[in-house]
Design a protein around this nucleic acid. Sequence first.
DNA 1: ACTTGCTTGGTTTTT
DNA 2: CCAAGCAAGT
Length: 639
Amino acid sequence: MIAEAKVWECDRLLSDLNPEQREAVVSLDKPLLVLSGAGTGKTKVLTTKIAYIVNGGFGFPYQILAVTFSNRAAGEMKTRLAELTGNVDGIWLGTFHSICARLLRFHAKSVGLDQDFTILDADDQLKIIKQILRESNLDGKMAAGILHTISRWKDKCYRCDDKSIDGASLDGKIYKKYQERIRSYDSVDFGDLIMYVIQLFAENDDLLQKHRNKFRFILVDEYQDTNMSQYFWLRMLSPTGMGLCCVGDDDQAIYSWRGAEIGNILRFEKDFPQSKIVRLERNYRSDGHILGAAASIIAHNKRRLGKTVWTEGNMGEKVFVQCAYNGFDESKLAADKIQFLHQRNVKYAAMAILVRAGFQTREFEERLLAYGLPYRVIGGLKFYDRREIKDIIAYMRLVHQPNDSLSFERIVNIPKRGIGASVMSRLHQYAAATGTSLYQSAKHIVATNDLRPSAKKSLADFVAMIDNFREITEPQPTKLAQRILDETGYITDLKKTVEGASRLENLRELLVALEDFDTLKTFVEHISLVTDSIRTNDGDVVSIMTLHSAKGLEFDAVFLVGWEDGIFPHNLSLQDENLEEERRLAYVGITRAKKYVFISYAMNRRVYNQWQSNLPSRFLKELPLEHIVSQNFCISNMI
DNA sequence: ACTTGCTTGGTTTTT
DNA sequence: CCAAGCAAGT
């Protein structure tokens, strides 16, 4: 009876899929690579596969590990899975980093970390490196570059004593110091999250075996974006690839500059000789001409596994290629089309302007503003990057984990309490000498007569205040945040400044977001791993964003702007291997569209207030004439 | 502590 | 060119 119900349930799940999708779902006995072209239903396959495993009785939810690259993808999978099965409990579903954080919390002691370790963000990392540089009398401006180098090393799973690293080089030396420093803070960065878990498994075989047995099914989304560390991590959990199912699209690998190794997906068959590859090539998103244009462009790449995306849908509109006289005119072309489409009942929210680099958004913003068209810039300044948000979060982190010295340092004098550089250097000295945190040091120093009376009192008051906040057992984050804002005088301080109003607005938004959390602990963990902006529902507005942040999204109409050599492909990416990645970016851009693609370029453009004439993007020549309509529409209202 | 003037760089961005 | 970040001065 039960078996029968299950069979029926599985049939229902599978009936909704095309043959290739079905094969990808049903195949459980081999290492599986699902090559999933744009718009071919990869999330559907992943979620159905999970449902199939559970409902078909092949495994229990807690035996399934599903890893995604971004929080957005994890969230979407959760939603879709809930729709499909109504229940997602027990499944280990999350980003590489959140899953590693979870594992590491359980076993922190085994790698010598405190269970309450803090997770650093890029800002924290940069601060620490600047600190180290300054101590060595070196220029702090090098910090960003060094951080980049260290991050890439960590993506490759190189520890600071790794033989591949020249320990005598500046970067190598800073890496060592940096690692020492963050360890002493009981903190880890994003790279560490993966590396520590690898270390944990390498040093504790029983633990590794336990997890190998536990996770019988490992599903990996966006496999083309994994870095070496993540690859090693996966191979530890599934050395033979049995139960492993990687889904990805080598043609959409656009994050190599961040350590992603497209080689991981290209090498899959070699890594797992018993493996099977399923290609999802049937596209359900874009009309024929759009798909044809995208396919022709990507066919120019050499390093790819190769697949041909097709559709049964109609050919639709051809890709519209336009030349503008200059950048101003280009924005006008887009705005006019947006207006036109909207009159034809295309929603603003179904349209997007995709740029190569952040600075390009301004021209389009100005134009849409002038036209009175609603828009939103996605990406750019992140909600959690705002000063006031980071301040209040630092308070909350310090309340949760008093030894979080970075948070301590951030807010000890915010609002101003008269605790300046001299007090801080005294604290640092003490902390270094005793091997304790700044908070602990403050507690000790306050009991001595080392500080001038006023500073001593300020510091004592500060410590007492934090302790006071801590005494609220398991505080609800909203309430705690409200108290912090009131009792520290943060709000009062804010009201004195001009931009205070908008900052207050942001804080209010944060308080609302905080209501989703029951405990401070869950919030702090969440905030460390999620740096995405709070998704505000702006309603029916046009999206402006970079090509990178458009990945995974879809729109009826897509405006691909600035297709000029030097802008796109970008100046710094004109060498061969980088050019392939730029081309993938073009592929990603075109395949975001369901019905309309407008590509434009400008003959003249002002860059850093200097007029330059760029050649049309070399990618334009790769668009076959049968799929495009070209119009040299050179207007100018500026000259 | 806050201002001022100088230098410098100005792809992509998630975790 | 313009914004940000920093060193030095009030």
